[in-house]
C-alpha cells in the first residue's frame, strides 16, 4: 500500500504533466525516496494509481539505473567510474571502499549499512576522484579522506 504521504507527493507532481504516463518515472522515484527501492508490491500500487500496466512500469524501471528494483542498505554509496576519475585513481578508491566494507559493487554489506554502486561521471571532474553517498557529493578523495567520509555513516 502506498502511504498517504507518497500519494500526496505523487498527486502534487501530477499537475506538472498532461497525463499520468509522464509520472511513471517520478512516481517510482518518490516511492524509492521513502523506501529505498521499488518492490513488486509498490509497482502494483503505482499501476493502479496511474492506470498503467505493471509490465509498462517495470519496462521503465529497468531502463533507468537510478530506479532500484532490489532493496538497498541504510546508505547508498555511488562511486564514479568515468574517465576523469579513472585517470585520477578512481579504481584505487573503489577497491579501498570495497575492501573496507567487505563487499563488492552492486552488493550490500552483511550488516545492511551500505550498498555500493558504480555511477557514471558526477560532473566533479576537476575534483576527481569523486563519489556520492545518499545524494551528497564527496570530492578530491584519497584513501584517508575516504575512510573519514565512510565513518560518518553509521
Amino acid at each position: 500500500m502506498l502511504t498517504a504521504e507518497e500519494r500526496r507527493e505523487i498527486e502534487i507532481k501530477l499537475a506538472d504533466y498532461p497525463n499520468k504516463q509522464a509520472m511513471s518515472i517520478e512516481s517510482m522515484l518518490i516511492v524509492q525516496r521513502h523506501r529505498g527501492w521499488v518492490s513488486d508490491e509498490s509497482l502494483g500500487d503505482l499501476s493502479e494509481l496511474l492506470g498503467l500496466s505493471v509490465a509498462d512500469l517495470d519496462g521503465v524501471a529497468t531502463f533507468y539505473n537510478l530506479i532500484r528494483r532490489r532493496p538497498v542498505g541504510r546508505h547508498v554509496a555511488m562511486v564514479c567510474d568515468s574517465v576523469s576519475c579513472w585517470i585520477m585513481g578512481g579504481e584505487r578508491i573503489r577497491d579501498r571502499l570495497c575492501s573496507r566494507l567487505d563487499t563488492t559493487l552492486g552488493e550490500t554489506t552483511a550488516d545492511g549499512r551500505f550498498t555500493l554502486l558504480p555511477i557514471v561521471c558526477l560532473g566533479a571532474c576537476d575534483h576527481a576522484p569523486a563519489m556520492m553517498i545518499d545524494g551528497k557529493l564527496y570530492e578530491d578523495l584519497d584513501e584517508q579522506r575516504l575512510d573519514e567520509v565512510v565513518a560518518r555513516y553509521k
Partner: peptide, 11 residues
C-alpha cells in the same frame, strides 16, 4: 542532463 564524462559546466 549533463552526463558527458569529463563535463562539469552546467552543474
Amino acid at each position: 542532463d549533463e552526463m558527458e564524462p569529463g563535463t562539469f559546466k552546467d552543474r
